[in-house]
Design a protein around this nucleic acid. Structure first.
Lengths: 128, 128
DNA sequence: GTGTTTGCAAACAATTTGCAGAATT
DNA sequence: AATTCTGCAAATTGTTTGCAAACAC
């Protein structure tokens, strides 16, 4: 199945690349709607899924019930703010450390691991 | 708001303590139903949430869209099988290592981190 | 022209909630 | 008796899907 160009998909990708906070599908929808008032949420979901499948964006699940999306595809760690829910990138190179330690204690095959940190982001800290 | 005894909640807790694979709410429901045929899924959800809030059980979100529950409350790492979806405990104590490294690169307050490993469990490896 | 993508609405899955009656204290 | 808990069903949330028309190649 080949992929054809669509302006909606392009707009979604463009919007994502302007953001560093890993918006949810709904946030993408509301913003792309400014340029394409007729776009539907279904289209946003379809394209986010497609882009994640082709590896052009990253789907991030931080356990808050909704998926987040990220235009930076190189694997890195994330931080989730307990107060405002924002998801931020952490500026630390990926550590395989953890996987190496665990491998010796487990009877199966470990492909990788998912880690996210949580706490209070700078903005929320300052509001206290 | 005080908490009153309920046989349903007790049955849920008992069932969880017999399992090592972190069942979902639905699995808990189907099993507790054997002893309490009239129990409703709503009651299961309400009690799982209550028990998780009081710290008697652990709610685990591994990004597969459904919550899993665990009667072992001491913090530890989990493994998710990519093939059968099972969630298993890893016999390695939680490492603060990671948090310590990240702290120096981040402008907020880090409370902790969530990590789960993924790959193939022993059973699924053998089936190949 | 053929095949993919869209908008819309309906369908879905997981979870939560309102309510009247039952159980616990 | 007061209050919490239950069962049921309806509501909510996040996401997926079927379909006919619109668009890309």
């Amino acid at each position: 199945m080949q992929i054809k160009y669509s302006r909606q998909r392009e707009a979604i990708k463009d919007f994502l690349s302007t953001r560093k906070d890993h918006p949810t599908a709904d946030v993408v929808y509301m913003n792309v709607k400014k340029d394409y008032p007729n776009i539907s949420l279904g289209t946003v979901y379809r394209n986010l899924t497609l882009l994640a499948d082709t590896g052009e964006i990253l789907r991030i699940r931080v356990g808050d019930g909704t998926d987040h999306f990220d235009s930076t595809t190189a694997s890195h760690y994330h931080f989730v703010c307990n107060s405002c829910g924002k998801v931020l990138d952490l500026d630390v190179e990926e550590l395989n450390l953890l996987g190496n330690i665990v491998v010796n204690h487990f009877d199966g095959k470990i492909d990788g691991h998912v880690t996210y940190f949580h706490g209070l982001c700078k903005d929320c800290l300052e509001k206290k």
